[in-house]
């Protein structure tokens, strides 16, 4: 079943001279529940803009974005914010962990915007989540004292703590070395899969894209299917980390 559907999406930005700069043009994309989709593109090709549109962080200039078959164009800001928190989990290239908060506080942060039991149990849930990503003993450590790989694992735990239906990862390995990047990517893929979440990865790394079920190339704002990339020697990915369902 299609979870996210983009139909003829365009995004333009105004220029100081009054002109218009097209970022995305006529993008069509379907993402099904539990599916792993990779979008490859060079810097400036519009990858992050596409991800922001998918995550309801931005709105298209033209076209239609359907979430669960419902158009999102007319949603009020409050509803968009709520959907963003409930449906999506974000993993950023620069981790974007909250400084001076412990790993546990970082993972619990999205649950501040949850309600009822999820809010009240946020600390416990965060600890369980950190356990799942192998950082159970680093819960009291602030991001400044974690390695890049550990920080991205905290970010993955944070993205998954509200059991999202879609994980949007923007260059998740971009700030990591090859080996750590491979480990983190494997962890992200298995964690999303075990949670039943769709995973949309934006990357310029074909090795990362290769892990996806479907791959696209974004070039000058236009999205097109990507032919199977030639095998590239990569550091073998570690075995997937078992990730039990946090919210049974």
């Amino acid at each position: 079943m299609t979870l996210l559907a983009l139909r003829g999406i365009s995004r333009e930005v105004g220029l100081p001279d009054g002109g218009v700069l097209p970022i995305l043009t006529g993008v069509d994309l379907d993402v099904a529940a539990g599916e792993h989709v990779a979008i490859v593109g060079r810097s400036g090709s519009g990858k992050s803009t596409l991800l922001n549109l998918l995550g309801l962080l931005d709105t298209p200039t033209d076209g239609e974005y359907l979430l669960d078959g419902e158009p999102t164009g007319a949603l009020r800001a409050r509803r968009r914010a709520r959907l963003r928190g409930e449906v999506f989990g974000f993993v950023f290239q620069q981790f974007n962990l909250l400084p001076r908060r412990t790993a546990e506080e970082n993972v619990a942060a999205p649950l501040l915007y949850a309600r009822g039991r999820d809010y009240l149990r946020r600390r416990r849930t965060a600890r369980e989540m950190l356990d799942r990503v192998g950082l159970g003993t680093r819960g009291d450590t602030v991001p400044e004292k974690l390695s890049g790989g550990e920080q991205q694992r905290v970010a993955i735990a944070r993205a998954l703590v509200r059991s999202p239906r879609v994980v949007l990862a923007d260059e998740p390995t971009g700030a990591l070395d090859v080996e750590t990047g491979a480990q983190v990517m494997a962890l992200l893929a298995s964690a999303a899969a075990e949670g039943g979440a769709a995973l949309v990865t934006i990357t310029h790394d074909l090795n990362v894209a290769r892990l996806a079920d479907r791959r696209y190339r974004l070039d000058a704002g236009r999205l097109a299917p990507l032919a199977d990339p030639a095998p590239t020697p990569v550091v073998p990915a570690p075995a997937p980390v078992p990730l039990a369902e946090v919210h049974p």
């Binding site: 995550g55 962080l57 800001a77 409050r78 914010a81 709520r82 959907l83 963003r84 928190g85 409930e86 999506f88 974000f90 950023f92 974007n96 909250l98 942060a109 999205p110 501040l112 915007y113």
Partner: peptide, 11 residues
């Protein structure tokens, strides 16, 4: 980042 967690403007 907090907005990406679902924080509304009023929040």
């Amino acid at each position: 980042v907090r907005r990406s967690f679902g924080a509304t403007s009023s929040r």
